[in-house]
Amino acid sequence: MLCGNSGTGWFSGCIVSRIHVLYFAALRDQAGRSEEWLDCQPGDTPSAVFDRLAASRQLQLAPAQLRVAINDRFAEWTTHLNAGDRLAFIPPMSGG
């Protein structure tokens, strides 16, 4: 039983919700779009979302090659997503 003795529940805020996914550079080419809204599932993390997208959008980059940003800040793959979050997967950078 996940919620244990927590009365408020574990997944509040993420039951019926969507997240905004941004694609850049090589990932945008692979996904064929620059952004999309996705249904968020309970307990979603960037890692879980990427796993689903890698299959449905045929993304060819591995998570270890990417970094993650949530709401315009670098974040961890295990961070839990909330409704309305803006999620970006960052391919290897090549500025300068």
Partner: peptide, 23 residues
């Protein structure tokens, strides 16, 4: 810094720099 360089070549092809092993 999340900036990505997309090069366009004389032979008409292009590629994302630094992403050679990405596909």
């Amino acid at each position: 810094v999340p900036i990505w360089k997309h090069e366009f070549y004389a032979d008409g092809t292009s590629s994302w720099v630094g992403c050679d092993g990405c596909s």
